[in-house]
Amino acid sequence: MTYKLILNGKTLKGETTTEAVDAATAEKVFKQYANDNGVDGEWTYDDATKAFTVTE
């Protein structure tokens, strides 16, 4: 299944996707991606759209 990450960081904005077996796996991938790019903020998840959002 495809999951999307929407980044609303102070220095990094954009979107990326990942293929994962479930939302928990996608969340781990996205949190590592955000951490690697220096984005740390409030996380939300919308199951209807399979989209995670992180806002700094």
Rank of each mutant, 00 (worst) to 15 (best):
T17A: 07
Y3E: 02
F30E: 00
L5G: 02
G9I: 08
V21S: 11
K10T: 11
E27M: 14
N37A: 13
E42T: 13
G14W: 15
N35T: 14
Y45Q: 01
M1F: 15
V29Q: 08
D36W: 07
K31V: 06
V29H: 11
T55L: 06
L12A: 07
D40R: 14
A51D: 03
L7A: 03
N35K: 15
T18A: 07
D46T: 04
A23G: 04
T2I: 14
M1W: 13
G14P: 05
L12K: 10
E15I: 13
Q32G: 05
G41P: 01
G9P: 03
F30K: 01
I6G: 02
V54P: 00
T25P: 01
V54F: 05
K28E: 08
T55S: 08
E27L: 15
A51V: 15
E42V: 14
Y45C: 00
A34I: 06
A23H: 10
G41L: 03
T16D: 03
T44P: 00
E56P: 07
A26D: 00
D40Y: 15
A23D: 05
G9D: 03
Q32N: 07
N35Y: 15
G41E: 01
M1D: 12
T2A: 06
Q32W: 05
E56C: 07
A24F: 10
D47Y: 09
K4H: 11
E27V: 06
T18Q: 05
V29C: 08
E56H: 07
E56V: 09
K28S: 10
T25N: 07
G38V: 04
A48Q: 11
K50I: 02
Y33W: 14
T49I: 09
Q32H: 06
L12G: 06
F30C: 00
K4I: 13
I6R: 05
A48W: 07
T53V: 06
V21R: 12
M1N: 13
K50E: 02
K4G: 03
M1L: 13
E27R: 09
A24M: 11
K50L: 10
K31L: 08
V29P: 01
F30W: 02
K10S: 10
D47Q: 10
Y45V: 01
E27H: 11
K28M: 13
K31R: 15
E56G: 06
E42M: 12
A48M: 11
T2S: 07
V21N: 11
D47K: 09
A34E: 00
T17V: 08
A26L: 01
A48L: 13
E19G: 05
G38T: 04
M1V: 14
F30R: 00
D40P: 04
E15W: 14
A48V: 13
T11L: 12
A48T: 12
T17I: 09
Y3K: 02
A26I: 02
V39D: 01
K50F: 09
G14R: 11
D40M: 13
G41N: 02
E15V: 14
T16C: 15
T16F: 15
G41A: 02
K31G: 03
I6Q: 04
V39L: 11
A26W: 01
D40G: 08
K4P: 02
G14Y: 14
D46F: 04
E56T: 08
A23S: 09
E19L: 14
W43T: 01
G41I: 02
Y45D: 01
D40F: 15
D46H: 05
N8A: 08
D47M: 08
E27Q: 11
G41T: 01
N8M: 12
K10D: 06
L7N: 01
A20T: 05
G41Y: 03
K13M: 08
Q32E: 09
Y3A: 02
D36E: 13
T17C: 11
T44Y: 10
A26Y: 01
A20E: 04
T17S: 11
T25I: 07
Y3T: 02
A24N: 08
V39M: 08
Y3Q: 02
A26E: 00
N37P: 01
T18R: 05
T16A: 10
K4M: 08
A48N: 11
K10Y: 11
E19A: 08
K13S: 09
I6M: 05
K50C: 06
T17Q: 09
D46C: 08
E56A: 07
A20Y: 03
G41F: 03
N37H: 15
T18Y: 12
E56R: 04
N35S: 14
T55R: 06
T55G: 04
K31F: 06
T44F: 10
Y33D: 00
T44D: 08
D40C: 14
Y3G: 02
G41R: 01
D40L: 12
E42R: 09
A26Q: 00
N8K: 11
T49D: 07
D47C: 07
T49K: 10
T17W: 14
T53S: 06
G9N: 04
N35L: 15
T49H: 10
T2G: 04
N8H: 10
D22H: 04
G14S: 12
N35F: 15
G9Y: 07
D46G: 02
D47H: 11
L5F: 05
K4T: 14
A26R: 00
V39G: 02
L7K: 00
E19M: 14
N35A: 15
D22C: 05
T49F: 07
N37F: 14
D40H: 14
Y33S: 01
T53F: 07
K10R: 13
N35M: 15
L7Y: 10
T18H: 07
N37Y: 13
T11W: 14
T18N: 04
T49E: 10
K4D: 03
T17D: 05
V21E: 12
N37I: 14
A20R: 02
T16W: 15
I6L: 06
I6N: 04
T17L: 08
N35G: 08
W43N: 00
G9L: 15
L7H: 03
D36Q: 11
T44K: 08
A34M: 06
A51Q: 14
A24V: 10
T49C: 07
A51P: 00
F30P: 00
W43C: 02
K28W: 09
E19R: 14
